[in-house]
Deep mutational scan, measured.
Amino acid sequence: VTLFVALYDYEARTEDDLSFHKGEKFQILNSSEGDWWEARSLTTGETGYIPSNYVAPV
């Protein structure tokens, strides 16, 4: 499993987005949709879409 870490804070803009804080780690569930990836936060357990340019591989 490839994990990603948040480089910046992000505040959700829609109900499908996932808010997160810098340093939070994610498991990517689906990265085939372009710039927005479906991810699960390893901190909160919540699932939603995150901007791929806000995260980097651990």
Rank of each mutant, 00 (worst) to 15 (best):
V1P: 13
V1Y: 12
V1S: 13
V1K: 11
T2R: 08
T2G: 12
T2V: 13
T2F: 12
L3M: 11
L3Q: 09
L3E: 11
L3K: 06
L3I: 14
L3R: 05
F4C: 08
F4T: 04
F4E: 01
F4V: 13
F4H: 07
F4M: 09
F4K: 03
F4G: 04
F4I: 04
F4Y: 15
V5K: 05
V5Y: 12
V5L: 05
V5T: 06
V5F: 09
V5D: 02
V5M: 09
V5C: 07
A6L: 01
A6Q: 00
A6E: 01
A6R: 00
A6H: 00
A6C: 02
A6V: 01
A6T: 03
A6D: 00
A6Y: 01
L7Q: 05
L7Y: 03
L7T: 04
Y8G: 05
Y8R: 09
Y8P: 00
D9S: 08
D9C: 08
D9N: 07
D9W: 04
D9F: 04
D9Q: 04
Y10I: 01
Y10P: 00
Y10M: 03
Y10V: 02
Y10Q: 02
Y10T: 01
E11K: 11
E11C: 11
E11T: 12
E11M: 11
E11H: 11
E11W: 09
E11V: 14
A12N: 05
A12C: 05
A12G: 12
A12S: 12
A12W: 03
A12L: 02
R13K: 13
R13V: 14
R13W: 09
R13E: 12
R13F: 10
R13Y: 09
R13A: 12
R13T: 14
R13N: 10
R13I: 13
R13G: 10
T14N: 15
T14E: 09
T14C: 14
E15W: 09
E15R: 11
D16Q: 13
D16V: 14
D16H: 15
D16T: 15
D16F: 15
D16P: 04
D17W: 10
D17S: 15
D17V: 14
D17E: 15
D17I: 11
D17N: 10
D17L: 10
D17Q: 15
L18Q: 03
L18M: 14
L18R: 02
L18P: 01
L18G: 00
S19R: 04
S19Q: 04
S19N: 06
S19E: 04
S19V: 03
F20E: 00
F20S: 01
F20K: 00
F20I: 06
F20G: 00
F20Y: 01
H21I: 13
H21F: 13
H21W: 09
H21P: 05
H21C: 12
H21Q: 13
H21L: 10
K22I: 09
K22V: 10
K22W: 05
K22Y: 06
K22S: 07
K22G: 04
G23S: 03
G23A: 03
G23F: 05
G23E: 04
G23P: 00
G23T: 02
G23Y: 05
E24C: 06
E24K: 01
E24M: 06
E24Q: 06
E24F: 04
E24A: 06
E24S: 04
E24H: 07
K25Q: 12
K25Y: 15
K25V: 15
K25C: 12
K25F: 15
K25P: 05
K25I: 15
F26A: 01
F26K: 00
F26L: 09
F26Y: 01
F26E: 00
F26Q: 00
F26N: 00
F26V: 03
F26R: 00
Q27R: 08
Q27G: 03
Q27L: 14
Q27E: 14
Q27M: 14
Q27I: 15
Q27V: 15
Q27D: 08
I28V: 10
I28E: 01
I28A: 03
I28P: 03
I28G: 01
I28L: 07
I28F: 04
I28K: 04
I28S: 02
I28Q: 02
L29M: 09
L29W: 05
L29G: 04
N30Q: 08
N30H: 08
N30D: 12
N30E: 08
S31K: 12
S31E: 09
S31P: 09
S31T: 13
S31Q: 15
S31M: 15
S31I: 12
S32W: 09
S32F: 11
S32I: 11
S32Y: 10
S32P: 10
S32L: 11
S32H: 11
S32C: 11
E33G: 14
E33H: 15
E33Y: 13
E33W: 11
E33D: 15
E33A: 14
E33C: 12
E33T: 12
G34C: 12
G34V: 14
G34W: 12
G34K: 15
G34A: 14
D35T: 12
D35E: 13
D35Q: 12
D35W: 10
D35F: 14
D35I: 11
W36T: 06
W36N: 06
W36C: 07
W36M: 13
W36R: 15
W36E: 04
W36Y: 12
W37P: 01
W37R: 02
W37K: 03
W37H: 03
W37A: 03
W37N: 01
W37S: 02
W37I: 07
E38A: 08
E38N: 08
E38I: 15
E38T: 11
E38D: 04
E38F: 15
E38K: 11
A39L: 01
A39R: 00
A39P: 00
A39V: 12
A39Y: 01
R40K: 13
R40W: 07
R40P: 00
R40L: 13
R40H: 07
R40S: 05
R40T: 13
S41I: 06
S41K: 14
S41A: 07
S41D: 03
S41P: 01
S41Q: 05
L42W: 06
L42D: 04
L42R: 04
L42P: 02
L42E: 08
T43H: 12
T43Q: 10
T43A: 11
T43D: 11
T43S: 13
T43E: 13
T44E: 01
T44S: 10
T44R: 04
T44K: 04
T44M: 02
T44F: 03
T44N: 06
G45L: 08
G45K: 06
G45H: 08
E46M: 14
E46Y: 10
E46L: 15
E46V: 10
E46F: 11
E46K: 15
T47F: 07
T47M: 09
T47H: 08
G48W: 02
G48P: 00
G48M: 03
G48K: 02
Y49V: 08
Y49Q: 09
Y49R: 14
Y49T: 08
I50H: 00
I50C: 01
I50S: 00
I50L: 07
I50P: 00
I50N: 00
I50A: 01
P51G: 03
P51F: 06
P51D: 05
P51T: 02
S52F: 07
S52N: 06
S52W: 09
S52E: 04
S52Q: 07
S52V: 09
S52C: 10
S52L: 05
N53V: 08
N53H: 12
N53M: 10
N53W: 15
Y54M: 12
Y54I: 06
Y54V: 05
Y54L: 12
Y54T: 05
Y54Q: 06
Y54F: 11
Y54S: 10
V55H: 01
V55F: 09
V55C: 04
V55W: 01
V55Y: 01
V55S: 01
V55E: 01
V55A: 04
A56P: 01
A56R: 10
A56Q: 11
A56G: 09
A56D: 05
A56L: 07
A56K: 11
P57I: 08
P57L: 08
P57V: 08
P57H: 06
P57R: 07
P57K: 09
P57S: 07
P57E: 09
P57F: 06
V58Q: 07
V58G: 05
V58R: 04
V58W: 13
V58A: 09
V58T: 08
V58D: 11
V58I: 13
